[in-house]
Design a binder for these strands. Structure first.
Lengths: 334, 334
DNA sequence: CTGTTAGCGCGTTCAA
DNA sequence: TTGAACGCGCTAACAG
C-alpha cells in the first residue's frame, strides 16, 4: 500500500475508463456484467476505496449530518444521541457532533455549518427561540429537524407537551395527599427552548385547580445547570421548619440531587419528603425515582428518520410539531 | 444569498486573484495590509465562507477526527465522550462518531475510515485485541490514540491498571470484614480489550492473599451486557441460603442492577449485602455507591490532547501506555 | 454500454 | 507582493 490507489488506477487495472468505474461504484446501472466484474476485481486487488473529500466535492453532498446541542453533559442528551446513532448507523451518513454553550454560539455554529456546507442536514436540539425563525428566513429549504423547541416551529419537530407533563407530575403528588409543594429547576433550559417554563406552568395550573397556594419561597429557579448550586439551595429550603412536603424537580438529575440533600438532612423519602422527577433517564430506575417519562431514545430515532426522509426527497408531513406521549412512572419516591 | 459565493466571487469583488484570497484566508502571510482589507471587506459583504469539501480535497486534510466505540450505550462512554468533546471544541476539528457491535464490524469500520480518508486521526476505544497489531502493520503512521486496550499496545494509549483496580475493590471489602465474596461482570468487555478479565484477576489475587476460597458458584460472568440477564442471575444467587455477603461488580451499572435485586429481595445494603462498583460514573454519587474511580472524563481529554499533538506533528512520548490513577471512593454500599 | 471531458472550489506552485 | 495556471479525485454529462 505505497500510495493509495485512485479511481484512475482502478480504471487502468481494469482496462476501462474512469467513468465506468464511477458507475460501478454508484449503483452500477448500465454496465455490462462482465466489465462490472473486471472493475470489481481491480478494486479488490488494489484495495481501493474512494476518497471521500473528492466524492463530496464533485457530488455536492457531504454524506454527513450534524447534531447540535447545548446539553452535551446531560444524560437526557446521551439517551437521545443513542436513538440518533442507532438510526443513522444503517444509513451512509456520518454523525458529526457539535456542542454549544450560549445562544450566540449556537447560532454562529449553525450558520457556519450550513454556509461552509459541512453537513447535508441538521438535527437541532433545544434551538434558541430566536434562531428558529431566522433559520427559516435565511435557509428555508435546508434540511433541519428539531427536538424540543418552543412555538412557533418552522421545521419538522418532535417534542412533548411540557405543560401537560408538569401538570401530570403535580397532579400525582396532589393525589397522594401532599399539599405543600415545592418546585425546583434550572431555567438554563429556557435559554434554549422553553421547557422549564412550560413545566412550571403545568405545576401552577394543577395547584390552582386544587385551590392550593403557589408559594414562591418553595421555588428554586437556578439560572444555570450546576449541581452544587442546586444542592445549596435545596439544603437551605429543606432545613427550614416551614419546608414543603413534596418537591417537583424539572429533571431527574435535579431530583437526584434533592434526594441526596434530603438524605444528608436525615429526611426519609418519601415519608418526610416526596420527590418527583421528569424525563425517566436510565438512572431513574436504579434510584427508584417516581417520574414522568418522555421518550428520549425514541425522539432521537424519529428525528433521524424524518431527516433521512427529507434528505431522500420525501417531503415531511405537514403536521409538525409532533407531540410524543408522556407517561407517569410510579416508583418509590412519592 | 442566491447561490453561495465562491472564492472566485470574492476575488472578483476585491479586484484580486483567487490566490490572494486564499492567502488571506490561511494565515495571510505576504499580503499587503491594504489588499488584505479589501479582501476582508469582500468576504464580509458576500457573506463568504469557504466550502469545506473543496478545502479538504485540495489540502488533503479532513479536519475531522473519528471516535470508534463498541460501548455507545454505556454511561462510561458518555463521560469519556464529554472529555473528548470538550477538548476538541477548542480546535478546528470536527468530531465524528462511529459505533460498532462486533469485533469484525469494528475492524471494517476502522479500515474504511482510514482508506477512504474520512478522518485525519482516530480515537479508538476498546479496540479488539487482534486489530491493534494489524493496524500497526497496515497503517504504522496513521494518527491513532487508544483508550482501554490490552497489551501489547502499539499506539499512544491511556488506560488504568485493572488488575490493581480489581484488587483494590476486593481489598476494601475484605478490610470491612466481608468474607463471602461474589463477583459479577459481563465478559462482553473482553471481546474488546480485556478489562473484565483483569479486574477478575485482581479479585482472585486479593482473595488468595487472604487465604479465602474463590467460589465459582458465587460468580456470574455474562457473555453480553444485558440488564435483564444480569438481574435474573443476581436474583438466583442472592435468593440462595448460601449466598455471598458481598459482591464486587465489574462496573457501576452492574452494581446498580444488583442493588435493585437486593432491594426486591428485602436485603439491606450494606448490612445484608455489600456491593462494590467500578468506574464511578455520575450516577454512583446519587446511588451512594462505594466504588473504584477511574478517570473517565480525564482519559477522554488526555487522548484528545495527545491526538491533537500528533496531528500537529509533535511526536508522541515513547512512554505509552500511560496508566491513569485509580481511587477508592468510600460511600454507603459496603 | 462505455470512454472522454468538463467542472466541483480551493491550495499551491511559479512567474511576473 | 500578487495573479494565473495546475491539480486534488471524483461525478455527471456527452459523445460514440
Amino acid at each position: 500500500m505505497r500510495t493509495k490507489a485512485t479511481i484512475k488506477d482502478v480504471a487502468k487495472a481494469a482496462g476501462v475508463g474512469i467513468g465506468t468505474v464511477s458507475r460501478v461504484l454508484n449503483g452500477g446501472l448500465h454496465v455490462k456484467e462482465e466489465t462490472r466484474l473486471r472493475v470489481f476485481t481491480a478494486i479488490e486487488s488494489l484495495d481501493y476505496q474512494p476518497n471521500q473529500a473528492a466524492r463530496r466535492l464533485s457530488s455536492g453532498k457531504t454524506y454527513s449530518i450534524g447534531i447540535v446541542t447545548p446539553f452535551f453533559t446531560r444524560p437526557s442528551f446521551s439517551e437521545r444521541l443513542q436513538g440518533i446513532e442507532q438510526t443513522l448507523r444503517e444509513s451512509n451518513y456520518d454523525l458529526v457532533l457539535y456542542s454549544s454553550t450560549t445562544a450566540n454560539h449556537y447560532q454562529n455554529r449553525v450558520y457556519s455549518l450550513i454556509k461552509e456546507q459541512r453537513v447535508d442536514g441538521l438535527i437541532l436540539l433545544n434551538v434558541p427561540q430566536t434562531l428558529c425563525a431566522q433559520l427559516k428566513d435565511d435557509f428555508p429549504t435546508f434540511p433541519i429537524v428539531m427536538l424540543d423547541v418552543a412555538f412557533p416551529t418552522y421545521f419538522p419537530c418532535f417534542m412533548v407537551d411540557d405543560v401537560l407533563g408538569g401538570w401530570m407530575a403535580t397532579q400525582a403528588l396532589l393525589k397522594k395527599g401532599y399539599t405543600r409543594l415545592g418546585y425546583f429547576c434550572d431555567s438554563y433550559a429556557d435559554v434554549f427552548g422553553r421547557s422549564a417554563a412550560f413545566r412550571y406552568q403545568g405545576f401552577v395550573n394543577a395547584l390552582h385547580e386544587h385551590g392550593l397556594p403557589n408559594r414562591s419561597d418553595w421555588h428554586c429557579l437556578l439560572p444555570r445547570f450546576e449541581t452544587h448550586l442546586l444542592e445549596k439551595q435545596a439544603h437551605a429550603l429543606l432545613s427550614s421548619p416551614d419546608r414543603p412536603d413534596a418537591i417537583f424537580a424539572s429533571s431527574d438529575i435535579n431530583a437526584f440531587t434533592i434526594i441526596n440533600v434530603a438524605r444528608q438532612l436525615q429526611l426519609r423519602v418519601p415519608q418526610d419528603l416526596a420527590v418527583m422527577g421528569y424525563d425517566d433517564i436510565e438512572a431513574a430506575t436504579y434510584m427508584n425515582l417516581t417520574t414522568i417519562r418522555q421518550p428520549l431514545h425514541q425522539s432521537g430515532q424519529l428525528a433521524t428518520r424524518t431527516l433521512l426522509h427529507v434528505l431522500d426527497g420525501v417531503p415531511p408531513e405537514s403536521t409538525f410539531p409532533h407531540f410524543l406521549p408522556l407517561e407517569y412512572i410510579a416508583r418509590q419516591t412519592i
